Amino acid sequence: MAEIVNLRQAKKQAARKAARSAADANAAKFGRTKGERELEKARAEKAAAHLDAHRRETD
């Protein structure tokens, strides 16, 4: 005999699985770790400070 399946639950489970796979794909495509974001921010701040340090004063 075949197993009885609740179609409503099966549809919800399939939708969750599809959403999870889409989220994983987006995370791999766009996501960065917190450490990577902080490192990029620190590098940008250092570059801006370096540029400001070499700016000429005009009065």
Rank of each mutant, 00 (worst) to 15 (best):
residue 54 H to Y: 08
residue 7 L to R: 09
residue 46 K to A: 15
residue 14 A to K: 08
residue 18 A to R: 09
residue 37 R to G: 00
residue 45 E to L: 11
residue 11 K to G: 01
residue 40 E to R: 05
residue 44 A to C: 02
residue 32 R to W: 09
residue 28 A to I: 00
residue 36 E to S: 01
residue 34 K to A: 13
residue 20 R to K: 15
residue 7 L to E: 14
residue 19 A to L: 14
residue 43 R to I: 08
residue 1 M to I: 04
residue 36 E to L: 03
residue 26 N to K: 07
residue 34 K to V: 13
residue 5 V to Y: 03
residue 15 A to R: 09
residue 29 K to Q: 13
residue 33 T to Q: 04
residue 29 K to C: 01
residue 26 N to P: 00
residue 19 A to G: 03
residue 56 R to E: 10
residue 8 R to E: 11
residue 51 L to A: 15
residue 56 R to M: 07
residue 7 L to W: 00
residue 11 K to D: 07
residue 28 A to D: 13
residue 15 A to S: 13
residue 23 A to V: 00
residue 4 I to G: 05
residue 47 A to P: 01
residue 35 G to K: 08
residue 50 H to P: 00
residue 4 I to A: 12
residue 30 F to K: 07
residue 18 A to D: 08
residue 48 A to C: 03
residue 31 G to N: 03
residue 59 D to I: 04
residue 4 I to T: 09
residue 44 A to T: 10
residue 19 A to S: 10
residue 44 A to S: 06
residue 47 A to Q: 07
residue 58 T to N: 12
residue 23 A to M: 12
residue 48 A to W: 01
residue 47 A to N: 06
residue 20 R to D: 08
residue 49 A to T: 04
residue 21 S to N: 07
residue 15 A to W: 04
residue 8 R to C: 01
residue 25 A to R: 14
residue 19 A to Q: 12
residue 44 A to Q: 11
residue 57 E to C: 03
residue 43 R to Q: 15
residue 52 D to L: 15
residue 2 A to V: 05
residue 21 S to V: 08
residue 15 A to P: 00
residue 37 R to K: 14
residue 25 A to L: 13
residue 19 A to R: 09
residue 36 E to Q: 05
residue 9 Q to C: 05
residue 36 E to D: 06
residue 40 E to T: 07
residue 13 Q to S: 08
residue 55 R to S: 09
residue 7 L to C: 00
residue 50 H to V: 06
residue 16 R to F: 10
residue 47 A to Y: 03
residue 37 R to Y: 13
residue 23 A to E: 08
residue 26 N to E: 12
residue 8 R to M: 03
residue 41 K to E: 15
residue 11 K to N: 10
residue 40 E to W: 02
residue 22 A to C: 05
residue 54 H to Q: 14
residue 27 A to M: 11
residue 29 K to D: 06
residue 25 A to K: 15
residue 1 M to G: 13
residue 41 K to C: 05
residue 17 K to C: 05
residue 22 A to G: 03
residue 2 A to Y: 09
residue 54 H to C: 09
residue 35 G to H: 06
residue 50 H to F: 11
residue 46 K to F: 06
residue 30 F to Y: 15
residue 38 E to R: 08
residue 28 A to N: 14
residue 55 R to N: 00
residue 54 H to S: 13
residue 46 K to G: 01
residue 4 I to N: 10
residue 59 D to G: 12
residue 51 L to W: 14
residue 30 F to N: 15
residue 49 A to W: 04
residue 23 A to S: 07
residue 25 A to G: 11
residue 3 E to W: 01
residue 37 R to T: 11
residue 29 K to L: 04
residue 30 F to T: 01
residue 11 K to F: 05
residue 48 A to K: 12
residue 23 A to L: 07
residue 45 E to W: 06
residue 39 L to H: 11
residue 53 A to I: 03
residue 49 A to G: 07
residue 15 A to T: 13
residue 34 K to E: 15
residue 21 S to A: 12
residue 16 R to N: 10
residue 18 A to M: 02
residue 4 I to H: 10
residue 58 T to R: 15
residue 34 K to T: 15
residue 32 R to N: 08
residue 4 I to P: 07
residue 45 E to F: 02
